[in-house]
Amino acid sequence: MQNAIIGGILASVACGVVGSYVVVKRIGYLAGGIAHSVLGGMGIAYYLGRPPIEGALVAALVFAVILGWVSLRMQQQEDTVIGALWAGGMAVGILFISQTPGYNVDLMSFLFGNILMISSDDLFWIAGLDVLILLIVFLFYKQFLAVSFDEEFARLRGIPVERFYLLFLVLVALTVVILIQIVGLILVIALLTLPAAVSGLYVRSLNLMMLLATLLGVAFTTGGLAISYQPDLPPGPTIILVAGAFYLLSLFITRFWKKA
């Protein structure tokens, strides 16, 4: 339980920071593609007897670069190609898992996560990825802001826009890998976008949006854990439902506010 709470807090850092960029840049679908295709890597790692997180990391990075290239070069068919890679990645994963001898893995825990089973090793992974993400965001804060706000202007100021777009997708990939440990890959997109989306309804600056999204992430994960604990519900879906309910409520409140 202690590991689960720490895991939730650590994951919220990445999802608050990177999720805010995903929301303002409106690339939820692309992030979803990265998240789901990661199952391919997890399946292969599992087949080879390696920890699934290693496979997830490799697959997330590879798919981030491929999908980024697709969205830059093939804008006409972008959504079709993302859809194909999304489903293809998952199919590869399921094939490898089915061919793995011995215990049949609990596919459900890949798909829907199991925050209660998080090990200390996992926590080190998550903390390490957090540090890496924050470091990159601090170093290139200006460029990320410029590229997500106004790409054309950023390009004219000499920013290598495409390189930063790919680097940004790498950050999304790292975050996805972290979040898969918490809620599994089906629900990643909700945890990546909902705290930031709620936060974006209330604040008018990207820094504050990231900070508030992180705090909301902590609230959603610990809140979801607490609610699921007593009736022994699966924590991943509970966390997502808490976040989703909060988002809808916030949407309603802010709309009502504007009208009043």
Binding site: V24, K142, L145, A146, G158, R204, L206
Partner: peptide, 15 residues
């Protein structure tokens, strides 16, 4: 986009 006037103007400093 959640960005202030000052932050937008600062973009001009890139490069």
């Amino acid at each position: 986009f959640p960005i202030s006037v000052e932050e937008v103007v600062l973009m001009g400093r890139l490069g």
